[in-house]
Amino acid sequence: MENESIKEGITSFLNHSDTPQLFAILDYKLKDGVHIQREGKQVELYNYLNANEISLVNYYRDLFNVELTFAGTEPNTYYFLDFIGANRGRIDTNHRHHMKSEFVIIGFIIYKIFYIDKQVDVSSVQDLQKKIRLDYEDLKPGIYRLIAKSRNTNPGNLNDEAIDSAIQSALTEFKKIGWVKLQGDEFDLLPAFDRLILIYEDLITNIDETLSELK
């Protein structure tokens, strides 16, 4: 009876009326590292996930050895798949998300601009590119080094266009995983951007020291 109860807990989401339309879409997004929140077209997926949370938590934990995690504070909550400890789970490597170092650093700078310096006037990609180029000029050598490492080139070959390109690419990457809304030149931080803070809590806590290492 216990095994039957466990099985029912894992598969009960299959009985939900929206499963045929939504589960495959949700499954691909979660495995690709997307954070699901009450945002745009994700609202339907979020509500489905919320309605089947216990069953889906058991499903991903028991079959894939990863943790379906709920984070944030109401109303800015979100779901994502997290690895358990050092275990990478049983999700194919093609679906695992690895973020480039320069994107992480750009995320740190965005965090500092919006959450520490509270520069709310930055609302476009061009605004962000200009602010990082001008107000954080002392960090550029370190950003160049990170970009050069990922591109396998010499930092001396890079200029401000490389910074602008890296910022655009970082925002595009953040959009893919549900951290920002990006449409043309306009962008907004989404609740799941908070995940950056959770992943790199120690570095964010000492962000000035972290960024100073780029100088």
Score class of each variant (00 low, 15 high):
I116N: 02
E102I: 01
R88E: 14
Q42K: 10
Y111D: 06
R90G: 03
D32T: 06
I163P: 12
E4Q: 09
L158H: 09
I177Q: 05
S212W: 07
S123D: 13
G85I: 03
F64V: 01
E2P: 02
L189D: 05
S12I: 03
E44W: 00
R61K: 14
T77I: 02
I143C: 08
A71R: 14
T93S: 14
F80W: 01
M1Q: 12
E8P: 02
H35L: 12
K215F: 10
Y136W: 06
I197L: 09
S101I: 11
I143G: 00
D208R: 05
S17V: 08
D82H: 06
G9C: 02
M1H: 09
N76C: 12
S169W: 02
L49F: 08
E186C: 07
T93F: 10
L49R: 02
D127G: 12
T210W: 04
E4G: 03
Y111W: 11
Y115K: 11
L182Y: 09
S165E: 11
A192D: 06
G85C: 02
I25Y: 10
D117S: 11
M99W: 05
H16L: 13
D62I: 07
F64D: 01
K181W: 12
V120T: 15
K41R: 14
A170E: 06
T153R: 05
F23A: 15
K29M: 15
I147W: 02
